[in-house]
């Protein structure tokens, strides 16, 4: 196991609002991490700082030994929670965009996954339903052969079938060399997938540790632990 991401004393604030405070974390290869917390807890900000879309105010992030930059973006596959795919694109144009822009994109696998996800390659992105957009997003992200995958709220607002398909896709893609970070507040959907969990609230890390250890220590499932942790938040 190698340390893939190391975060030391990270602070991030926007004009008046503190988004992240004193975050210290390490992510090891071969593990799936859950970043759990309510909306506005700092999950997205943390992911965007790692993805080099936002800049921290203080502290250091090292991704495989490098500071976040356009270079690290080459091996970090980030899936934002927003619909980040241009609406004017057709599904096949979005695939081509990824192939053009990312050297690690596996077009063959993407073609397969498009079938599995039941997407029409000639359909325009703007005309896809929420569930279809989410499936396209995950397909594009996961078909990169990246070292680090970060999925921001991959299951939010989706129908059960889309959720299942996306979960199966995440599990199938995961390999022991890489790191997978999934942010969500739909805890029981991902409980069986996570090696480690990080509870984040108000921009601070509240608890982090192995899923199984936490469950054993507290004698409860993650969902109940989540309720307990964020009862006051």
């Amino acid at each position: 196991m190698n340390t893939m991401i190391k975060i030391v004393d990270l602070h991030k604030s926007y004009m008046t609002k503190k988004a992240l405070r004193n975050v210290n974390l390490e992510f090891q290869s071969g593990k799936i991490y859950g970043l759990l917390g309510p909306n506005g807890s700092g999950k997205t900000t943390l992911m965007k700082v790692i993805a080099d879309l936002h800049q921290q105010n203080e502290g250091e992030i090292l991704i495989c030994g490098e500071k976040p930059s356009h270079k690290t973006r080459a091996f970090v596959a980030f899936m934002p929670t927003e619909n980040f795919i241009y609406g004017w694109m057709k599904v096949k144009e979005a695939l081509q965009f990824y192939k053009d822009m990312y050297q690690d994109f596996d077009m063959e696998r993407a073609e397969e996954l498009i079938q599995f996800m039941e997407l029409d390659k000639n359909q325009k992105v703007a005309s896809l339903s929420t569930g279809q957009k989410a499936r396209l997003k995950i397909t594009l992200t996961i078909c990169r052969r990246a070292k680090i995958y970060m999925l921001d709220e991959p299951l939010n607002g989706l129908d059960p079938i889309s959720r299942t398909k996306i979960k199966e896709c995440i599990i199938d893609q995961f390999d022991s060399e890489g790191v997978m970070i999934i942010s969500t507040h739909l805890v029981n959907e991902v409980e069986q997938i996570l090696d480690e969990v990080i509870f984040i609230g108000g921009g601070e890390i509240i608890i982090s540790g192995e899923t199984e250890t936490l469950r054993a220590e507290r004698g409860k499932g993650l969902e109940d632990i989540y309720r307990e942790v964020f009862a006051n938040a």
């Binding site: 930059s69 356009h70 270079k71 980030f78 619909n83 980040f84 241009y86 609406g87 822009m101």
Partner: peptide
């Protein structure tokens, strides 16, 4: 635009 930064996620510098 919310759907805009797809371009800035790519490994190309500014």
């Amino acid at each position: 635009k919310q759907e805009g930064y797809m371009l800035f996620m790519t490994p190309h510098n500014g």
